[in-house]
């Protein structure tokens, strides 16, 4: 290649083309950035994705299940304990990951290292930056849930033919909890330890009281509402339907899906609005 041709090859396309491409694909461009950052701690992600399900399923399936199953399977809808908790753990892990990905990195983007403001000066819009972040995290949730589901299958805890759909349910549950949280994270201008409070007083109670380790019906009515408002419970119930054919009124199954989608859409709407307001000041 001659020097002149080499230089010609190094011409950037026109600003008009750049703007048109950014308008169309901007969210994907930002998702690419987030995925590159994730690649930097890829081993941690892999270890978490594999280690978490193996540890939990081993503890529940080999440890706790031997005791629980000895009491009979009636309390858990006629299935073994590990089959009962499998979808719940899958959904909970997705929600936990979404909690991590939609809190600290958002604060990092707006405040700590202001990483959102680099792309903000490019043709990308704030809404595309938010969308790109969500797309990358969604991909991570999908992959993590797929690995988790594989572990569930290995433990013999997904007897139904539709078990694979729990991957989608878990991802949706992660977004239904994560996106409203992302909107909240985007509204924080000063770090006063809010995320630690979210983990301790919202995520953990939801994890414990969402019918994860025992049916929600076994809780007193006074605390059962925690499950009703919890994306983990709605995701878990829906996951059980697909995973082992858990019997419940079809309308309730639809309701679980509607609640999860509604929360995710609401969160997406609020996040878009918050990003645009904060970056357009």
């Amino acid at each position: 290649m001659t020097d002149g041709t080499a230089r010609e090859a190094l011409r950037a396309h026109s600003p008009d083309i750049a703007a048109a491409r950014a308008r169309r694909w901007g969210a994907f461009y930002y998702a690419e950035q987030v995925l590159r950052v994730m690649k930097g701690y890829g081993w941690s992600i892999i270890m978490y994705s594999v280690g978490h399900p193996v540890a939990y399923l081993f503890a529940m399936g080999v440890g706790l299940a031997t005791l629980v199953d000895a009491q009979g399977a009636e309390a858990f809808g006629g299935v073994g304990y590990v089959t009962f908790v499998g979808p719940a753990l899958l959904v909970s892990a997705s929600v936990m990951t979404a909690t991590n990905e939609f809190t600290f990195p958002v604060m990092d983007g707006f405040k700590w290292r202001r990483t959102y403001y680099g792309p903000h000066a490019s043709p990308l819009t704030p809404q595309q930056i938010a969308a790109g972040h969500i797309m990358a995290v969604t991909l991570r949730l999908l992959l993590q849930s797929a690995v988790y589901f594989a572990a569930v299958v290995l433990f013999g805890a997904a007897p139904g033919g539709w078990g694979w759909a729990t991957i989608l349910v878990a991802t949706l549950a992660g977004l239904s909890f994560g996106l409203p949280l992302m909107a909240y994270s985007a509204s924080i201008t000063e770090d006063k330890g809010q995320f630690a409070l979210v983990m301790r007083f919202i995520v953990m109670p939801l994890f414990l009281f969402s019918g994860t380790f025992f049916p929600l019906d076994s809780l007193p009515l006074a605390v059962r509402w925690v499950g009703w408002i919890s994306p983990i419970w709605h995701g878990t119930e829906l996951g059980r339907v697909f995973s082992y054919g858990y019997q419940q009124p079809p309308l309730l199954t639809v309701l679980h899906a509607v609640v999860l989608v509604a929360l995710a859409v609401l969160g997406w709407f609020l996040t878009r609005r918050q990003f645009a307001a904060r970056m357009g000041k």
């Binding site: 950037a12 396309h13 680099g118 490019s122 043709p123």
Partner: peptide, 29 residues
């Protein structure tokens, strides 16, 4: 507001992508 979790050269590549620039241009650039 550089991306401190990315390496120096990757910061340039990623930023160029925001303009829809292809990698064939971005790497030598």
């Amino acid at each position: 507001n550089l991306d401190e979790e990315l390496r120096v050269r990757d910061n340039l590549l990623v930023y160029g992508r925001y303009f829809g620039l292809p990698m064939s241009y971005l790497k030598p650039k």
